[in-house]
Amino acid sequence: MFVSLREKEESTTSTQAAQPTQEYAIETRNLNIYYGDFLAVQDVNLQIQKQKITAIIGPSGCGKSTLLRAFNRMNDFVNGARVEGEVLMHGVNLYGKDIDPVEVRRRIGMVFQKPNPFPKSIYENIAWGARINGYKGNMDDLVEQALRAAALWNEVKDKLKRNAYELSGGQQQRLCIARAIAVRPEIILMDEPASSLDPISTLRIEELMQELKKNYTIIIVTHNMQQAARVSDYTAMMMLDSETRAGTVIEFNDTKTIFTRPRDKRTEDYVTGRFG
């Protein structure tokens, strides 16, 4: 019925030379995103490196979140949203005809702007995602490992049965990260994960991201330039196209270059705070 992403990966490993896309975690080709007739994101070509943190920055309303949500097909739930072009993962187009969006999201996890734990216990928050995805191992171990990986274990190990809403905002967000990694995705998308948190919680999330990138590819949307400079290895700069009024990536490079020697005048204006 549908192409298993795994299977494809193995087949491509054997013919590595012929498939240069293999070295990227995700690659977009001429990606356009529409809401009805409205072109929201235009002609994006990105190669996201594996086990690195890639930041997407830009002024508000330029389509950063829309682009991020295109990576795991979360835009499917928006009425009238549609995509042209390709989003490739292991050489497979995620918008191909036989691709199952549920499996896509199982492999590409997401952390949202505001912490959104389920109104269940801390334990159940992590166990639920694992359970629906057919996890067969020891659930207690999985919960502990996910919480340790999210640097939350020591704070919650004595109250796993308590409702997740009792946690602070920063703890809730780390719980959401733990929940995402418990289903073992390859990529984690983060949509301004620290924007609703205080500076100390933000710092902890940023430290956590450095830890997580050893195993995961992370793509983060942020409008906080310092954060992008601090945490990311690569940075994509988005801006509204002056003619079409659609968001597009105007510059993509390693973070150091973007923040010190940007090629595009607009990027320079933006990162130095001279923008609009």
Binding site: E103, R105, F112, I132, N133, C176, V183, L189
Partner: peptide, 10 residues
């Protein structure tokens, strides 16, 4: 956001 959280877990 709760629905989205569930969808994002697959």
């Amino acid at each position: 956001s709760l629905r989205e959280a569930a969808y994002a877990l697959g």
